[in-house]
């Protein structure tokens, strides 16, 4: 994973609540065995509608997605995070994320930024008025600033997750540093626990 210190750029005002991962990337895209090639599938069904906000040329090149409550609900498909990243998004701002999506996003360096409902509503309205409005997310300071919208806020991100984003750490390598702890735990697992083979 590449390190992420700061995300700055224009935003796409999606604004809807309960956007599930089936909408972010429909299931037929999940038949692929590769980790790439998902950008064309992002919001595929909604993009078929010319009035869908992502089809508005003024928002082309947006680095931040502004979404509603419970973004990324439903299926655990990490393809949702891959499709967003491949489409140029580096952060999603929403009042609340579904747990698995949030975890998947962090594993891939897509920053999940949780802000209060009112702040997200303010940002959506501001970006709808002025698509060129810039938003800056500072991972180290856990802040979101958009002076033109009058927004300066902090967002929750635990120290561990922040460090991983800042340093772009490989989780598996980190865990394998504790191989002795794992082996010690394995030695005391109860005997009745099942083995598949």
């Amino acid at each position: 994973m590449e390190s992420v210190r700061r995300v700055a750029g224009r935003a796409l005002p999606l604004g809807r609540a309960d956007v599930d991962t089936d909408q972010i990337i429909p299931s037929h895209w999940l038949k692929r065995i590769e980790r790439t090639g998902y950008a064309p599938g992002l919001f595929e069904a909604w993009r078929a509608d010319p009035s869908f906000v992502m089809n508005d040329a003024r928002y082309r090149g947006a680095a931040i997605l502004l979404a509603g409550r419970n973004f990324g609900s439903g299926s655990s498909r990490e393809h949702a995070a891959w499709a967003l990243l491949e489409s140029g998004f580096r952060a999603v701002i929403a009042p609340r994320f579904a747990d698995i999506f949030r975890s998947n996003a962090l594993k891939n360096g897509l920053v999940p930024v949780e802000l209060p409902d009112e702040t997200v509503t303010t940002l959506v309205a501001a970006v709808e008025r002025d698509p060129t409005l810039e938003i800056a997310i500072d991972v180290e300071r856990r802040t979101v600033t958009a002076p033109a919208a009058g927004v300066s806020a902090t967002f929750p991100l635990d120290d561990h997750a922040r460090q991983r984003l800042l340093e772009g750490l490989d989780d598996i390598a980190l865990t394998l540093r504790h191989e002795r702890d794992i082996a010690a735990y394995e030695a005391r697992r109860p005997q009745w626990l099942p083995r598949v083979r």
């Binding site: 655990s76 498909r77 990490e78 975890s103 594993k107």
Partner: peptide, 10 residues
């Protein structure tokens, strides 16, 4: 609980 592909690998 359900996990993503990076966690499967982990």
């Amino acid at each position: 609980w359900g996990i993503g592909t990076s966690e499967i690998e982990h």
